[in-house]
Amino acid sequence: MTSQAPGLWPPSGPEVVFLLLGAVAVGSALLVVTTRQLVHAALWLVVCFGALAGGYLVLTAEFVAWVQVLIYVGAVVVLLLFGIMLTRAPIGPSAGLDSGNRWAAALVAVATAAVLVTVIVTGFRTAYAPLQPGRGAAEPLGASVFRTWVLPFEALSVLLLAALIGAIVLSRTDIRGRE
């Protein structure tokens, strides 16, 4: 795979697209963790997830991209917005969204990024994956899920059921724990 790989620079067409989408994702993610408005954070999260979905498309993972859009952008972010409203968060900009150990957090995050990027660049500088359109379409993926991965899939459904029950128990006020 790596033998006939082209050089890292200049990037090919799909790579350029992916890099642009990645820049959008990273930038919006940065805005998510730095903005002073809760609702804006949720909206920037939508942008980030959308850019990622685009990235999945470029990587030929079509089904994952659509699931990403449906579940993350459609369900998760809406759920988060509901949470923001239910906790009566202020709509406008609010001051104290960052805690005291902000600098320690920044340090750890930068260190993490440095370590990870260093390791990745060292390890996968020459790794090249040729893209085959249609490989991540719904059909082969569905066949794989319901053939090979059917048992984890069922286990996951049980997990979802448990999460459902747990969420109900946690949010209902008339169910009390044992004294």
């Binding site: 990645g22 998510v32 990024a113 996968f124």
Partner: peptide, 25 residues
Amino acid sequence: MHVVYPVVVSALLFSIGVYGVLARR
């Protein structure tokens, strides 16, 4: 597609997530 590009983007996203988990109140 060089693997480095998506993986580096993913590492950066992960680090940003780490920062958010640690720094947000």
